[in-house]
Every structure is written in C-alpha cells, then in structure tokens.
Amino acid sequence: MFATLAGMEVTRPRHVEALREVGERARPVTLAGQQLLPVLTPLEPLLADGGLRRGTTVTVEGAPGATSLALTLGAAASVAGAWVAAVGLPSLGLSAAAELGVALERVVVVTSPPAQAWATVVAALVDAVELVWVGLPRRVAAGDAGRLAARARERGCVLVPLAARGATAGAGWPLAVDVRLVVASPTWAGPVGDGAGRLEARRVEVVATGRGAASRERRVPLWLPGPDGRVEPVDPPVLCRFDPVGRGPVDKEREGGGEATG
C-alpha cells in the first residue's frame, strides 16, 4: 500500500493534472448559484461576482435613472442569447432599451397582467426566461414575494422588481434582496443654453449594497446613458467633452455632486 503510494509520489504532478482535467470535464452539473448572467463591462465593478448571480433578486431604486439601470442589467445577457421579459411595465420605453444595448428580439412583454393573476403571470415568466423586470403593483404581499423569489432561485432566473412610478416609499419589494442598487446624483449633459443642443449623456453614481458577498458597499460613477447611448464608465478624458449645464465646469460639478449626497 505504502509502496504504491510512494511510487505514485514520483509521477504525481502529471497524474494530478490529468485527474483535475478529467474532473473538470466530467463535473456533472454546475449549481444555479455558480452560474452568472453576463452584464455590460461598466457594470461589472458593481457586482461582487462580476455578473448577475442566477436565482437572485436585484432591486434598482433611487432618483431618476433607476429604470435605465434596470434595463441595462439585461443588455449583455439578451445579446448573449438569454431571453428576458418585462411584466407590468406598460410605460417602458423599449426603444430606449434597444439603445441601452438590450436585444429586442430576445424580449417578451406582458404589458398589464390582471391584478388577481399578477403573481401567476410573474411565476410563469420566471419559469420561461432568464431575467424578468417586474413592475410591482401598489402592494405586494410578502408571501407572494417570498414564493416568487424562491421560484426564481430554483429556476435560476434573475428577478428585477421595479416600484411603480410615483409610488410611496414603502411600496417596493417587501423582502430583503440579494443586491440593492441605488442611483444617486444624476446630472445631464448636452443642452448648452437657450434651447440649443439636446440631452446627450447623464452622469450618475450607482451605490451597490446587498447580502453575502455583495454586502461591501461599492460606488461606481457611470454615464447612463453615455454620449453614444450605451452605459459607460466615467473617465476624465470623456468628462472634458461635456459641459454639464447650470453647474459650472466639470470639476466643480463633481464636488457639487458630493455635496448633494452628503
């Protein structure tokens, strides 16, 4: 026995290497939690795993920009061939979704599900697609939310609940979520005064908090949308091209943004 082991010792590196390769190849199933839905590169620093963990619930809140950020979450996945769905969001601008990078041919839309069948419809979509933007009704029962979250976890679907526009503070998702994204201090660039120019880009700061690996707070400044319509990371050379209106030069605007949040 020992002799055999000692004999193996000599050739160990090669064997171990081969065994590891075979193990990697023959690994039966990856767990839903280990699989990630891809996100656009600028959003990667926001998420602990660099992508959306399947089966999780992600809320997007905050000042103007929350809906845009929610749409952006589905962009890379839909381009990669995953199906996404929007339910209960009759006022969603889908041309904006296309500009933010969502592949429209991979989107299913149920505009206004009847109130009594809302949970059933969302559950059916959770079964069918890989990411669902859910427009929340006025009040969501904690039981319904719990069942939907459990179903999403089981099916490996990412749930993105969105509170209705003008909803009161308590009207959101009634449970704790895995990742919570908050959009803060939006500043538009583009109009140069007296009606000239147009809205071109918006600078926001996104704060990500959550549970588990996501519990460390991450702050990422983003262009949402950037000058070419896509989400982009903020880097100084790009900043100089824009002169945010009514806030003076760019550097001062940065400080101003800090004051607003503080």
């Binding site: 979704a97 839309v109 505009t111 599900p113 069948a117």
Partner: peptide, 22 residues
C-alpha cells in the same frame, strides 16, 4: 423553454396579451 412559457401565458391571459417588441 420560452416557447412553452409563452404558450402557457397565452392560455392564461389570451393570445394577444403576450407580446414581443419589434
């Protein structure tokens, strides 16, 4: 999977309720 899901929703809500953007 999505085809099945859409068929199921059509049975639930009627064929016109499930849409795709173009």
């Amino acid at each position: 999977r999505v085809t099945r899901g859409v068929a199921r929703l059509q049975g639930l809500l009627g064929p016109e309720a499930v849409t795709v953007p173009r």
